[in-house]
Amino acid sequence: MKLLPKAKHGMVSRKQSGEMPKLRLMGVYKAFGKKKVLNGVDLDVAKGETLVIIGGSGTGKSVTLKCILGLLQPDKGGIEFDGQNLADLTQAERDEVNSKIGMLFQSAALFDSLSVWENVAFSLLQNKTVSKAEAKRIAIQKLAQVGLNKDVAEVYPADLSGGMKKRVGLARAIATNPEVIFFDEPTTGLDPIMSDVINDLIVSTVKQLGATALTITHDMNSAKKIADKIAMLYEGKIIWVGTVKELEKTKNPYVRQFVAGSANGPIKMEVKV
């Protein structure tokens, strides 16, 4: 795996400036049984940049994030974090990398045996870097940032609505001030106003922490609002990367169809009527 040649670039142009990308995926392949999900994903995320991945349902966006997090093992290809190949790391180094990453799962994935504030403060409580009271104070502050008030802190996740769970998940992802944050569909299931609040929140926290963000979304409004760059995943490959401005002008038929949200175009949904 280490001997992989440095990235076959495919259709994606890559600025080879001196700056090392925070995160680099080089020809990542992943299949489940016979089903090929990722077919050579190449992607660079620069330090401090917010990259949004768009793409149809089931194209492997969540799988891409899970490969980076080490929750799934790619079949082929390399993933670099700060220039280190993740496959070469020992378990302790891997933990170290993970502690620099915050993740909002698509399903929120809150621990239902813990109350909301214990969820948010989970890492703080585990690392014992701060006292319990201090951890709770930070948790309540992070909850306030995502628009949840103090009363929610003592509630258990089972008693929250879907959108509230998402926001708690968001608070948990940013609680440790990570260098890199992954958001898997942060606005799905939220009302339009709350979506916009979350978009603003993502923009402001990313800016405030100087973090690098990788966001998955179907929501084009959200993508346009938060993205420095947008990448489109289709049939297991990144077929297009560009800025929001470039997105509006692009002639790429796949991207245009996706942005317009039209059923007619080169992307065919497999629906049997």
Binding site: G70, N98, M103, S107, A109, L110, F122
Partner: peptide
Amino acid sequence: GTMRVTEQIDALTTLSTN
């Protein structure tokens, strides 16, 4: 099993907890 299918076990790993 519930923790697995609701991705809570994955979440533990991402929060640097074995």
